[in-house]
C-alpha cells in the first residue's frame, strides 16, 4: 500500500521535474529522474522532518551531493510543502531561490551548497558527528552520484567515516545512497572511468553495504530499515538506477544528462510518465484538467 502512495508521489514529482526543466530551458533531467524514487522514499516515508521548521535542530538531514539532481529535490520539497509548488517554474531564473544547483542560503530546507562534485559526503559526516556530539538521534542521508564517485574527496570521506567518532560516537547515524545510474556527462561511467568493483570498495573501507534496485520502493524501504538497524558503522546503499527513468527517449542515453526537453518532448515525457498510450492521450487530457492545463502551459512556451 505504501508503494502505491509513493509511486503516485514519484509520478507527480517526475512530471514536475519535466515541467521545471522545460521552463528553465536547461538542467539535468537524467540524474533527476534516476534519483527521484530514492528522494520520495526519504521525504515521504523515512525522514523525521517538519517542512514548517526547516532549521529544527533534531531533523533528519538529506545532503544531495550530486547537486545537479536538484530538480528532483525541489520537486519533493515542494510536494512536502517546504515551499509553494507554483514556484517550481522559477528554476534557474534570475532572483529565484531555486538555483541551478543547491544554495543553502537561498532556500530553507537545503542543507548544504553542492554541485561542485565530491564534497557532500564530507559535509554529511561532519553533520553526523555534530549530531552525535549534541546527543541528537537525528540521522543524516547523503546521496552521491556514480560519476561523482570518481572524485578523490569521496574516498577521503569514505575512508574516514567508519573511523571517526569511535568508540563513543560511531557514525551509524549516517547513510549514503549511491545513485548508480551508470551514466555521466561525457559517456557511460564504465567507459569514462569504471567504478567497479564498487560494492567491494565500500566494504573494504569499512562500511555496511546494501545493494538494491533504486526504483523499487520496497527494496529502498528495507535498505533504509537495515541502515537504521546497523550499529557501530555507517551504511552505504548502492542503488542501481536508470538514468532518465520513466521517459523512454531519455532512458540510458548520455545525451540527456544535461539538456532540457523542448515543449513537444516534454509533453511526450509527461504522457509516458503518466503511463498513457498515444492513442488514449487526447481522451486522457479531456478528462484530466490539471494535466491539460500543464500541457497548455508548456506548449505555450514555444520552441
Amino acid at each position: 500500500m505504501a508503494d502505491a502512495r509513493l509511486a503516485t508521489i514519484a509520478r507527480e514529482c517526475r512530471v514536475q521535474i519535466i515541467r521545471m526543466l522545460t521552463h528553465a530551458g536547461s538542467g539535468h533531467p537524467g540524474g533527476s529522474l534516476s534519483v527521484i524514487d530514492v528522494l520520495v522514499s526519504l521525504f515521504f516515508a523515512r525522514l523525521r522532518h517538519d517542512p514548517a521548521r526547516p532549521a529544527w535542530a533534531d531533523r533528519d538531514r538529506v545532503v544531495l551531493s550530486k547537486g545537479h539532481g536538484v530538480p528532483a529535490l525541489y520537486a519533493v520539497m515542494a510536494k512536502a510543502r517546504y515551499f509553494d509548488e507554483a514556484r517550481l517554474p522559477s528554476l534557474r531564473k534570475l532572483g529565484s531561490p531555486l538555483q541551478g544547483h543547491p544554495d543553502r542560503t537561498a532556500l530553507p530546507g537545503i542543507e548544504a551548497a553542492t554541485g561542485s562534485l565530491g564534497q557532500g559526503l564530507s559535509i554529511a559526516i561532519g553533520e553526523a558527528l555534530g549530531l552525535r556530539l549534541a546527543g541528537s538521534s537525528a540521522r543524516v542521508y547523503c546521496v552521491v552520484g556514480d560519476g561523482e564517485s570518481q572524485e578523490g574527496q569521496v574516498w577521503e570521506a569514505a575512508m574516514s567515516a567508519p573511523k571517526l567518532g569511535q568508540p563513543a560516537h560511531p557514525l551509524d547515524n549516517l547513510c549514503v545512497i549511491v545513485d548508480y545510474n551508470k551514466i555521466q556527462l561525457d559517456d557511460f561511467v564504465a567507459r569514462v572511468l569504471d567504478l567497479e568493483p564498487l560494492v567491494e570498495k565500500w566494504k573494504a573501507f569499512g562500511w555496511a553495504v546494501v545493494e538494491i534496485d533504486g526504483h523499487d520502493f520496497d527494496q529502498i524501504a528495507k535498505a533504509l530499515d537495515q541502515a537504521e538497524a546497523i550499529r557501530g558503522r555507517p551504511t552505504v546503499v548502492v542503488a542501481h538506477t536508470v538514468k532518465g527513468k520513466g521517459v523512454s527517449f531519455m532512458e540510458n542515453d548520455p545525451a540527456w544528462h544535461g539538456k532540457a526537453p523542448k515543449p513537444a518532448e516534454a509533453v511526450q515525457a509527461i504522457r509516458e510518465i503518466l503511463g498513457v498510450a498515444p492513442s488514449a492521450w487526447d481522451a486522457h487530457l479531456a478528462a484530466d484538467a490539471p494535466t491539460r492545463a500543464l500541457v497548455a502551459e508548456l506548449v505555450g512556451l514555444g520552441g
Partner: peptide, 21 residues
C-alpha cells in the same frame, strides 16, 4: 578530530560540524 592527510575532507567535515551547531 584528526582525519588524516586529507584536507578537503577535513574542510567538509568542518562545514558539517558547523551546520550541526
Amino acid at each position: 578530530f584528526n582525519v588524516g592527510i586529507a584536507e578537503s575532507n577535513m574542510i567538509g567535515i568542518g562545514a558539517g560540524l558547523a551546520l550541526a551547531g
